[in-house]
């Protein structure tokens, strides 16, 4: 069965390594914080200006001055620090953040990503996404494999305006874990109960399928 959003987040959380500073984007990536494996300590950076982001506050303890990049009320953990936006992006551009997880509307087999604009329809802006993808060495995209109409979002080339070029190395969807190299997607794992055929059917980009594709262990 295809994973739900929490399942995708849980699988991505398995990629976390002890001691990493991690930036989580809006949407599915935010859920990764709920699934940190035992024995792993990571610190979350939110680009609006906090390192050491904690969980949502208890009801009645919300503080309008304390939010994440999704404008949600949050808490600060012991050892947290606040900083301005220029310093925040110095951390990001200067590659002091070890992992970036973000959502996407489209990903292409050359590592291009599109997630900020649908011409004539939706103009929300790129926020920090372009800075993040241009500089991060380790980017994981969290997304659904296909859109609501059943059309693949894992493509040969992106059709929407790009957020970054050749930057995505790994994609975790509701169906599969994919790696991007040599201008193709490589099928690494499949969601529990999902067949290789189902994944092939919903992948428009070139997909390299090994003889054995293990199920995700989540």
């Amino acid at each position: 069965m295809a994973l739900d959003k929490n399942g995708i987040a849980k699988r991505i959380a398995q990629e976390l390594q002890d001691g990493w500073y991690v930036n989580l984007g809006i949407g599915i990536p935010t859920l990764v914080a709920n699934h940190i494996p035992d024995g792993i300590e990571v610190e979350f950076q939110s680009e609006n200006g906090i390192l050491g982001m904690g969980p949502f506050p208890f009801e009645g303890e919300e503080d309008a001055d304390l939010i994440n990049a999704g404008k949600q009320t949050i808490t600060a953990l012991p050892g947290a620090v606040f900083f301005d936006s220029a310093m925040s992006f110095a951390m990001i551009r200067g590659q002091h953040v070890q992992l970036t997880v973000l959502g996407a509307m489209e990903v292409a087999q050359n590592g291009d990503i599109a997630n900020w604009k649908i011409p004539g329809k939706m103009v929300k802006g790129m926020g920090g996404a372009m800075d993040l993808v241009a500089s991060a060495e380790n980017i994981i995209v969290a997304m659904m494999h296909a859109n609501k109409k059943g059309e693949s979002k894992i493509l040969k080339t992106c059709s929407l305006p790009l957020t970054g070029v050749g930057c995505v190395k790994k994609v975790v969807t509701d169906l599969a874990v994919l790696e991007i190299k040599d201008n193709s997607f490589h099928l690494i794992e499949r969601a529990p109960g999902v067949t290789v055929e189902e994944i092939i059917a919903l992948t428009e980009g070139d997909l390299v399928v090994p003889a054995v594709v293990p199920e995700m262990n989540i």
Binding site: E62, G70, T73
Partner: peptide
């Protein structure tokens, strides 16, 4: 007023 845009909380 310090309006909150996305009020997100967890249960005690």
């Amino acid at each position: 007023e310090k309006r909150i845009e996305q009020r997100t909380v967890r249960q005690k």
